[in-house]
């Protein structure tokens, strides 16, 4: 599958998940390079393995993760615990990977599981960078919500 098709799938999958689960309109476009966030941020990752192997990750500021958690859980941001925020972002990564999986299966006309997902891991901190150690092609999509807040979704994928 070519890069453009994968990037388009990541873009539409993320937009759909945010619309249906977070009740937010977000718009994405291809980003050349790693995510670029200077302030305190979080990265939620889900690994997967099967016919395809790889991982999906969402990278955003702490403030945006709080906004996502509050919208998903229908709570105020100041009512959320740090764990609520991490769990919400982990669940978003999980849903993006799950939705991507079903769309990929449709595109490739595959029957059965394309891959199965791991438990999401969430990194939180001020000054860190994360890299997938793989020769699998990696794709990064930059998104903006209606307030102009930026976040990134990355996907590395290769056929086994």
């Amino acid at each position: 599958m070519d890069s453009k098709t994968i990037q388009e799938l990541v873009k539409t999958t993320t937009e759909e998940i945010f619309k249906s689960m977070v009740f937010m309109d977000v718009k994405g476009g291809f980003h050349d390079g790693p995510p670029d966030i200077a302030e305190r941020h979080l990265t939620a990752m889900v690994g997967f393995a099967g016919v395809y192997i790889g991982l999906a990750a969402i990278n955003c500021t702490h403030a945006f993760a709080q906004k996502v958690g509050a919208s998903m859980l229908q709570m105020k941001t100041d009512e959320l615990s740090a764990e609520d925020v991490r769990d919400a972002l982990g669940e978003i990564a999980n849903m993006i990977a799950g939705r991507f999986k079903s769309q990929l299966a449709l595109k490739l006309d595959l029957v059965g599981q394309v891959f199965e997902q791991s438990v999401p891991s969430v990194i939180e901190g001020m000054d860190y960078e994360t890299h997938a150690v793989t020769d699998a092609p990696s794709h990064c999509i930059r998104f903006e919500d209606s307030d102009g807040i930026v976040f990134y979704v990355e996907l590395a994928l290769k056929e086994v």
Partner: peptide, 10 residues
């Protein structure tokens, strides 16, 4: 799945 490595402070 594939390994990821995070490097940094705090």
């Amino acid at each position: 799945s594939i390994p990821t490595v995070t490097y940094g402070k705090e």
